[in-house]
């Protein structure tokens, strides 16, 4: 977020705060583009989160635009909010992953396997295929493709709680299958 953006945005932004909604829409579009670039760099492994976070941050900027001090750089204000929202997302994900840990523990059986990773993956597919659809799909989406529970629910048409239950029961069943393997 360089100083040229600062010069370009400052005038329209002050007009926007004074009530010019066309200038405001222009500013938000510029800010959205900046945010998209900022988050894309930081969320390389979570590309699906970028646009959601851009929107969430725009709403936050909108609701808190009275906290902008006209005597200070707009880019510093925007950058601080962008960073805050990024850290907040990371914290939320960390909390969620912590809650998921008990489920992952069921997979500890894999750690004991002496197959190499490729074999393990092939075996996993084979074992997965033996699971009923309502357990297999959630595991494929959440644990293999890395989608969130909400995204999985949308894709499979299952409810969120059905997805969670499916992952949990499915992993238990998988662990049981693996334990029984010779």
């Amino acid at each position: 977020m360089g100083s040229s953006i600062e010069e370009r945005l400052r005038g329209p932004w002050l007009a926007a705060l004074a009530g010019d909604s066309a200038a405001y829409a222009d500013c938000l579009r510029e800010l959205a583009a900046m945010l998209r670039g900022y988050y894309r760099k930081r969320l390389v492994s979570l590309p699906d989160e970028v646009e959601d976070l851009v929107q969430e941050t725009l709403i936050a900027m909108h609701n808190r635009r009275h906290t902008y001090d006209p005597g200070r750089p707009l880019t510093a204000w925007a950058h601080a909010i962008a960073k805050y929202k990024y850290v907040d997302l990371m914290r939320r994900r960390a909390v969620r992953d912590e809650l998921h840990e008990p489920i992952d523990d069921d997979l500890e059986a894999f750690a004991a396997s002496d197959h190499d990773a490729a074999d393990a993956r092939r075996d996993l597919r084979k074992l997965l295929a033996t699971l009923p659809e309502r357990h297999r799909r959630p595991i494929e989406c959440v644990k293999i493709e890395g989608l969130s529970v909400a995204e999985t629910a949308r894709r499979t048409g299952m409810s969120e709680s059905a997805v969670k239950v499916g992952v949990h029961r499915g992993l238990k069943a998988l662990a049981e299958l693996i334990r029984r393997q010779p």
């Binding site: 926007a16 004074a18 909604s21 405001y24 725009l58 709403i59 909108h62 635009r65 009275h66």
Partner: peptide
Amino acid sequence: LATGAGPV
């Protein structure tokens, strides 16, 4: 957002 926004 822009449509609903008045002056601050």
